[in-house]
Nucleic acid binder design. Structure first.
Length: 162
DNA sequence: GCCAACGTTGGC
DNA sequence: GCCAACGTTGGC
């Protein structure tokens, strides 16, 4: 049974554009969001993030750091195989394939913001009071409240839905 | 490049 | 279980 539209949830994924940019996601059409090695983010990837959820794509360590586009979840959490690969930068020798520690989801691009929203500008928006990104948090996968989502899409000139 | 904030590790 | 030391993130 399909979920109610009201059950769709929203997330923010950070990526350094030098390693993986929104433009690259658009070129790829879809990607495996692998390499997350933080337990709080892992819990979201494994337990909370569902197909069709919305994703805000954030460029960290960029000039300026900014929200740059909208993506959607196309596959829910499953084990991150790079953890088992000794040749991978993300190899985790403590992770057991029988009981994986690290998870990933797949996302696909929806559309870029017509106007990227720099972090400094986000900090000025009263609508974003309490947003995880603006708190002292280094979480690379984090929740976004529905009101914040709507505000950000409107501000960035992106459509409400897909 | 600096460095503050944060998360993880490991000795005890 | 505490907490100091260490490594990483990420804005500036």
């Amino acid at each position: 049974m399909p979920r109610q539209a009201s059950a769709r949830r929203y997330w923010l994924f950070k990526s350094e554009p030098d390693s993986y940019s929104f433009a690259q996601l658009q070129a790829d059409g879809r990607t495996f969001w692998h390499g997350v090695r933080n337990y709080q983010a892992r819990n979201l990837l494994r337990d909370e993030i569902q197909v069709d959820d919305g994703v805000l794509f954030y460029h960290s360590n960029a000039s300026p750091p900014a929200l740059v586009g909208v993506a959607k979840v196309v596959r829910a959490g499953y084990p991150d195989a790079t953890a088992f690969d000794p040749a991978s930068d993300y190899h985790d020798p403590k992770s057991n394939p029988q009981d994986p520690t690290w998870f990933q989801v797949d996302i696909a691009p929806v559309q870029p913001f017509r106007r990227p929203l720099p972090l400094a500008e986000l900090r000025e928006m009263p609508e974003l009071e309490g947003m995880v990104l603006l708190q002292k948090s280094r979480l690379s996968v984090q929740p976004v409240a529905p009101g914040q989502w709507r505000h950000l899409l409107a501000s960035g000139g992106a459509k409400e839905s897909w």
